[in-house]
């Protein structure tokens, strides 16, 4: 049972870690457009905007790519001209790190609180955890069938 618990926890942690650790591949024109907002006042990302101003901005980006400028250089030029609000997401430094970290801190705190609750609720009933519980939800025979039968009966009572 313990092994299973650890497997589930490791599986969940792996999903979270691997998916957060994934990095975007090298930049293209469209990727730079995703990093910028259109400055026409539409509040759309450049890649999504279809206004005339967005076409001008795309032209500027294509020009800079042709000049051999890197993604970082192009973004820095836009920031120097329009300020950081031209970026579609805050750069990962300084106070902005709070935005990136808070959701995961929130998740950890939530999981911690949930564990405390479950532990407290468990504390009210000091059953042994090592074997199947004889509450009519599991039986020594075909456990799957028993579970379904019980649930079927219970749910039919519910509705």
């Amino acid at each position: 049972m313990k092994t299973f618990k650890y497997t589930v926890v490791i599986l969940m942690a792996a999903v979270l870690f691997l998916s957060f650790a994934v990095q975007l591949p090298a930049a293209t024109s469209s990727e730079i457009e995703q990093e910028l907002m259109c400055d026409c006042g539409c509040n759309d990302m450049l890649v999504n905007c279809t206004c005339e101003r967005s076409e001008q901005m795309r032209g500027i980006i294509d020009g800079m790519i042709d000049e051999g400028k890197s993604k970082e250089e192009i973004l820095a030029l836009f920031v120097s001209q329009f300020g950081e609000s031209i970026l579609s997401s805050p750069p990962r430094r300084g106070f902005n790190l709070v935005a990136y970290g808070a959701p995961f801190v929130g998740l950890l705190v939530g999981v911690g609180i949930a564990f405390v609750f479950v532990r407290r609720w468990r504390g009210r009933d000091s059953d042994d955890e090592s074997g199947p519980h004889d509450d009519g939800y599991s039986s020594p025979g075909d456990e799957m069938d028993s579970r379904i039968d019980d649930e079927l009966r219970k749910m039919e009572d519910d509705i």
């Binding site: 979270l16 998916s19 300020g83 609000s85 031209i86 579609s88 805050p90 935005a99 990136y100 959701p103």
Partner: peptide, 19 residues
């Protein structure tokens, strides 16, 4: 003044959605 748009939410929320 900063903007928080699609890339931020995709990056932060996708792992949570997968979980």
């Amino acid at each position: 003044k900063i903007t928080v748009s699609q890339p931020f939410f995709n990056r932060v929320n996708t792992p949570l959605f997968l979980l």
